[in-house]
């Protein structure tokens, strides 16, 4: 069930996905969307790891992917809790609303 795709293509896919996620983070103003695009970026990084691991036929790539997954889970839970607080405070989900630490 396996393919023999050149590693380059896998990495290019990961890069493209990552760049798109980055664009999304920079463009969107709603924090939910920003977090969503952050997930895209993390996923792309994980994809790169798995591609590399499969090129060498070693389990290290997947191990790194598991760690990334664990980290993502923690980050998402805390991030969403913060979103709830933001909403509770400012009554909006505008990321630019929380800009008191300026100057």
């Amino acid at each position: 069930m396996t393919t023999s795709v050149p590693m380059t293509h896998g990495l290019i896919l990961a890069g493209v996905l990552f760049a798109m996620g980055l664009v999304g983070v920079l463009v969107r103003r709603n924090v939910i969307f920003i977090l969503l695009c952050l997930e895209i970026m993390l996923n792309a990084a994980g994809l790169a790891f798995v591609v590399a691991g499969s090129r060498w036929g070693q389990a290290d790539g997947q191990v790194m992917f598991i760690f990334i997954l664990a980290m993502t889970a923690a980050e998402v839970s805390v991030g969403l809790a913060l979103v709830l607080q933001l909403h509770h405070h400012f009554k909006t989900l505008d990321a630019d609303a929380a800009s008191r630490m300026r100057g």
Binding site: T2, G10, G53, S54
Partner: peptide, 17 residues
């Protein structure tokens, strides 16, 4: 980086070890 990827599957057992 042109080496083909995915030629040998990596089983979960190996990942666990």
């Amino acid at each position: 980086l042109g080496h083909p990827a995915g030629q040998a599957p990596v089983a979960p057992k190996q990942v666990g070890i």
